[in-house]
């Protein structure tokens, strides 16, 4: 305790978490989001087509509006995916990990290494095909403070995971 009571700390001298350079996600992540969106839109169009051919007496103007809506949906999806892809960034510092995401609602989370409970790297089916990985970092703070660093290369995710695990282990040994 005594080491920490130190009133003369100058806030300007402390490392600033906001001025850290954040590493962005790989371009494949943008591709993945667009691909997911394309699949969704494809299903939507197929349902529309099927309904047109089924002749259930739905007036044709409904389909016209739906198709127009679908077109804007495609544009909106691509736009939002791009914004999200550009908004993602992460950084590892000596003592903590910083993760930023979101365009409409930008959120930056900082988790000190000595508060991390465990780390897991995950790959969905699509991730495996495209060569992507997600790194999930769990804290005791519950879902609010857990983070999923998306848009990583598998080897990158593995490297970070091992780095953090080794740090946590070292911490536990000194305790």
């Amino acid at each position: 305790m005594k080491d920490f009571v130190n009133n003369s700390i100058d806030l300007d001298d402390l490392p600033d978490f906001e001025s850290v350079y954040l590493k962005g996600s790989v371009k494949t992540y943008f591709k993945k989001m667009v691909l997911q969106w394309a699949i969704f839109c494809l299903v939507y169009s197929l349902i529309l087509l099927a309904l047109v051919n089924l002749n259930w007496g739905i007036p044709i103007w409904v389909f016209k509006i739906s198709s127009l809506f679908a077109f804007f949906l495609v544009l909106l999806g691509v736009f939002l995916s791009f914004k999200r892809y550009r908004s993602i960034g992460y950084a590892l510092r000596q003592k903590d990990v910083i993760f930023q995401r979101g365009w409409l609602m930008k959120k930056t989370t900082v988790i000190p290494f000595n508060r991390i409970q465990h780390v897991a790297s995950k790959q969905s089916f699509l991730d495996k095909k495209l060569g992507l990985a997600v790194l999930r970092i769990y804290t005791a703070g519950g879902s609010g403070s857990d983070i999923s660093i998306v848009g990583l290369l598998p080897e990158e995710a593995l490297k970070i995971k091992e780095f953090i695990i080794q740090l946590i282990d070292a911490e536990e040994r000194t305790e």
């Binding site: 930008k106 959120k107 989370t109 900082v110 005791a140 609010g144 403070s145």
Partner: peptide
């Protein structure tokens, strides 16, 4: 346990943020 800083788009110009402190 962790800290989160939110910057909604409508507050970005005014340089305002929401801060969340996470505990267990």
């Amino acid at each position: 346990q962790a800290i989160s800083v939110h910057e909604p788009i409508f507050l970005r110009k005014r340089e305002l943020v929401h801060i969340t402190f996470h505990t267990a």
